[in-house]
């Protein structure tokens, strides 16, 4: 069936099978390989993207469920050549080692900061508790998010937020 999904502010129309998972739609149909396909069982969180403004595990959402909705992926964090503070934080604080969990971690972190601009370490850990870093680099991930909390987001972030 035909679906039209707005991904990072660009509308894409594609013919897909209803059983196609959103993560594969993003990676294989649209070539947006920033979101990672990990455990495939909604446990690891490497595939987290925003659906209508809310983080979801895209290995457990069908692409057809996103028809008419807005998706934001890690590729959509950067604005006009300027990295999101979350991305900068991960650079500054060595928030990634192998980098596999990074896109999902960043999407959840951005969402957390939009709702809670000054989260405690415990709140950050709770927010990412459904996401696994197999390098066990949690200390630096938390530090990266804290760094981002101290550096305001570019204006554009607010503007692109979509409410359900």
């Amino acid at each position: 069936m035909q679906v039209t999904v707005t991904v990072n502010d660009t509308e894409y129309t594609r013919e897909v099978e209803p059983r196609l998972l959103l993560i594969h739609f993003l990676r294989d149909e649209l070539g947006l390989t920033g979101s990672h396909w990990g455990c495939d069982t909604s446990n690891c969180g490497a595939c987290v993207v925003w659906l209508d403004g809310t983080p979801v595990k895209s290995c457990t959402v069908l692409a057809v469920m996103a028809d008419g909705r807005a998706v934001r992926t890690v590729e959509g964090l950067e604005r006009g050549g300027q990295l999101d503070p979350v991305q900068q934080g991960f650079m500054e604080c060595h928030g990634l080692q192998c980098g596999f969990c990074t896109p999902g971690m960043m999407m959840t972190a951005r969402w957390l900061l939009d709702r809670n601009p000054d989260p405690t370490e415990a709140e950050i850990r709770e927010a990412i508790s459904g996401q696994i870093c197999r390098c066990t680099g949690y200390e630096n991930i938390v530090r990266s998010v804290r760094w981002a909390a101290g550096h305001s987001a570019p204006e554009a972030t607010e503007a692109t937020e979509v409410t359900a």
């Binding site: 969180g45 987290v48 809310t54 983080p55 959840t108 709770e126 927010a127 459904g130």
Partner: peptide, 9 residues
């Protein structure tokens, strides 16, 4: 129940 991201959906 589950984790915050699963609970969103």
């Amino acid at each position: 129940i589950a984790d915050p991201v699963v609970r969103n959906w």
